[in-house]
């Protein structure tokens, strides 16, 4: 027996799942029979009550979300799900109590490319949705935007210079105005 709590991203919903053994599970009190086989690291055939699903999953690219956040693709409809085990929930409570909430302050390049334009300066206050900089890759210009209000602490990126995937571009301090 193992308990999990699943939350489809963008909803308030909480789905409770109990894995009873390797062929039965209880999902929101519905008992299901299942079997599955991985056909690659990220793709599996899943049969639930004899109904076929080909499922693809992508992990969250961020380190701390890697084990809990999954993009699940069935029939090319993609849903992001947060899937937590009992242990995850415990760990979360534990770290919250210690006030150890991690905030993302490093903006890294999502792909290799070249910096076309930097719209911000060090010390500048930036509102959610504003464009930090424009990155060119694969013949397309892409805007990197602020996910929340913040202040630019340091800029590492330089215009016209190429960057590698994962290279740090900006360092933020979370906005005090929040």
């Amino acid at each position: 027996m193992k308990n999990f709590f699943i939350n489809p991203d963008g909803t308030e919903k909480q789905i409770e799942a109990v894995i009873k053994d390797n062929k039965t599970a209880l999902i929101n009190d519905t008992k299901v029979e299942y079997e599955h086989k991985f056909i690659s690291d990220n793709v599996m055939i899943l049969r639930i009550n004899n109904k076929n699903y080909i499922v693809k999953a992508e992990n969250d690219s961020e380190e701390e979300m890697k084990d809990t956040s999954f993009e699940i693709d069935i029939k090319s409809e993609v849903t992001r799900l947060l899937c937590k085990s009992e242990l995850d929930v415990l760990m979360e409570k534990f770290s919250k109590n210690r006030g150890d909430v991690k905030i993302k302050t490093d903006i890294v390049s999502p792909m290799p490319g070249a910096i076309v334009k930097i719209n911000v300066t060090e010390g500048q206050k930036v509102k959610k949705g504003e464009v930090f900089l424009v990155l060119e890759a694969m013949k397309m210009e892409n805007e990197l935007k602020a996910a929340s209000d913040c202040v630019i602490q340091k800029i590492f990126a330089e215009e016209k210079k190429s960057v590698e995937k994962g290279q740090i571009l900006l360092k933020l301090e979370p906005s005090a105005a929040e």
């Binding site: 999990f4 699943i6 489809p8 991203d9 963008g10 909803t11 789905i15 799942a17 894995i19 599970a25 999902i27 929101n28 519905t30 299901v32 299942y34 599955h36 991985f38 990220n42 599996m44 899943l46 639930i48 109904k51 699903y53 499922v55 999953a57 992990n59 890697k66 084990d67 809990t68 999954f70 699940i72 069935i74 409809e77 849903t79 799900l81 899937c83 085990s85």
Partner: peptide, 24 residues
Amino acid sequence: KIQLDNDTEIAKSLASILFKESKQ
């Protein structure tokens, strides 16, 4: 809004658990 029918919701939930477990 994300709207999942019941079967798909069950399938996706179960899938997320199985992927999570295989990763670990």
